[in-house]
Design a protein around this nucleic acid. Structure first.
Lengths: 336, 336
DNA sequence: TGTAAACATGGTATGCTTACCATATATTCA
DNA sequence: TGAATATATGGTAAGCATACCATGTTTACA
């Protein structure tokens, strides 16, 4: 591949002049500009961004590290990140951690070596020493969706607790008194917040007893396996609260396999919607996070940091979430 | 951020010695190694990959340029690409083109500037001069899912024609004689191949007349709008063939809005499955592409090229696809 | 004991672009 | 007409890690 010297030689000028033409910066006569431009065309010259990045210490690249792009929620977040980054002249590198701290650590190191300008991180586990690594490197980062140790970092997440509380109150209003919650790992702050919101609603209703909370993973198997367990418990819950979309799908499969109808036999509500684009007939009563917005806001905040235009001190952006009532939940028979 | 000189100074050695410790290459005494390692720890030193890349002209980064990561099919492909790349020590940069040649061109340029080692490309349109750009730059690339002009490039795609043919034959066996096809843009080779497969089955059955082919986009709106049109046509088709997952969803919505039942009133078959992970109750009769496999095979081929272990001459990998019969299609009443 | 091989460490140049400084000519305005 | 300013172009060094070559020391073995 040709370099700027090849172009310069062909055009009969110095490399710096070629640079000026490319970057439209400084004085270049029309005659010279044309000669340079045709040399660029002839050689199909593409500037090597590595050199300048080496000097300027800016790569105009952001890192997005999340759990699994295969989950439509994260796909949408990623799209929000990418679009916003592009609008501001940045590009993104993506890494899937699959919730593994090792994978996360590998990615962070790799991306630091690549000299990304900043990180958007969905931390794989809450005891992350990841924040240390950033702070020691002085690389700006924004934490998405979850909390990590300490409180001196920028973050964007949904109001998990508030959303879970709303959703639970809705179930209570329908007359449900025994509700099972299936959720993610205890070291996942979003899982904890959702359970906390649930408990808050329960306590405010004076029903502290009898509630079942199942801690597992944010995946289908957890939803499926715990649902089978729940169906054997006595007294049986009249509603199941799935704290993410994949768990909800596992729940539904287990119920279907057992021949139970929703909502006639049991009500189901969930956290995280599936994008309209991939659902034929929206069915779940959910609290819907604004995934695209989360990606967008986080990226905007990160970029503001990079150009030193963010407010001083750590920012904590909590996105409101809305409850959407659909067909998977119904009034309990015999309830007032 | 500290550099290798800072580490070297702190450890009282030359930079090259630090390099040897980091890369486990060449001779270093245990004493020295320990001094260097503790210096690295103390400074939280992360090597800058830009310098070596500048010299070696290798970044160990691959570019994945596709239409829209929001489509679960592409998400799965992307995951196959990423996993395979990682296994081989590579990482990926992703770009969404939204089928726009401009966006594609922007991304290609940016990624070339970033000195990616190779490209995995789902071309936005078939008249791509993109291949020119690669050939002029001598950067290896593999084309996914579609064909572009010329025939001297590596590619991996599904047997669209064969799959469409199988699916159509299945409908014919069920007694359907009037089938409407809704497909993507004419300049999309996958769209063309699927229509070709359809026509092949039709012709072999001697039914050349009466078939309707609707060219649009690979999205929901196309599925929705054309379905409404189809429902007004007389004689009305007894089956609709949606040539991708999003079109299928649009079709279903239009049918539901018109109060039609599937498959009782009309049969629907589709190309592209939705991943098991996000469907509670798989419904569509489909030909299912092996998305993860496509990403994996393409990445393997690209990496083989990079290390000069690929077979000589352009490789064309056609993945077989299987028909999966589910509930969206049924025997035509009155058919034998 | 002599010599080849292994071990240990360092100096220098390279890859690519651009910031900075320098030089030189052309234009403007008092 | 002279001085200040605008226009136009170029030289040099910096940013980072490592390949390559060079030098020196220790070990192995005949």
């Amino acid at each position: 591949m040709p370099n700027i010297h090849d172009v310069a030689k062909l055009a009969g000028v110095a490399p710096i002049t070629v640079s000026r033409v490319i970057n439209n910066k400084g004085y270049v006569s029309d005659k010279t500009r044309q000669r340079v431009e045709s040399a660029i065309d002839e050689l199909a010259y593409v500037p090597n961004a590595l050199g300048p990045s080496l000097r300027s210490k800016r790569t105009m690249t952001l890192a997005l590290v999340l759990s699994d792009i295969t989950n439509p929620f994260w796909t949408t977040v990623a799209r929000g990140v990418e679009d916003t980054a592009n609008e501001n002249g940045y590009h993104i590198i993506i890494g899937n951690t699959d919730e593994s701290p090792e994978k996360q650590s590998d990615y962070l190191t790799f991306m630091l070596q690549k000299q990304v300008d900043g990180f958007l991180l969905v931390p794989a586990s809450s005891n992350v020493t990841s924040s240390d690594i950033f702070q020691r490197q002085r690389v700006p980062f924004v934490v998405l969706d979850r909390e990590i140790q300490g409180n001196d970092y920028d973050s964007v997440r949904s109001d998990s607790q508030g959303g879970a509380c709303k959703l639970t109150k809705y179930l209570l209003e329908l007359g449900h008194k025994r509700i099972a919650v299936i959720t993610g790992r205890q070291d996942n702050s979003a899982a904890r917040d959702r359970v906390r919101g649930f408990m808050q609603a329960i306590e405010e209703a004076g029903l502290d007893e009898d509630q079942q909370v199942y801690w597992g993973e944010f995946n289908q198997e957890t939803g499926y396996d715990f649902t089978r367990l729940i169906l054997q418990s006595r007294p049986q819950p009249t509603a199941i609260f799935a704290t993410n979309n994949f768990i909800a799908i596992g729940v539904m499969r287990a119920l279907r396999d057992q021949g139970l109808r929703v909502p006639e036999d049991i009500s189901v509500v969930a956290f995280d919607d599936l994008p309209a684009a991939i659902t034929i007939d929206p069915f779940f009563t959910v609290v819907s996070q604004h995934a695209y917005e989360m990606g967008k806001r986080a990226t905007e905040l990160l970029i503001a940091r990079l150009v030193d235009e963010a407010p001083e001190g750590p920012q904590e952006i909590i996105l409101p979430i809305d409850i959407i009532v659909r067909r998977s939940s119904s009034r309990l028979l015999g309830a007032p």
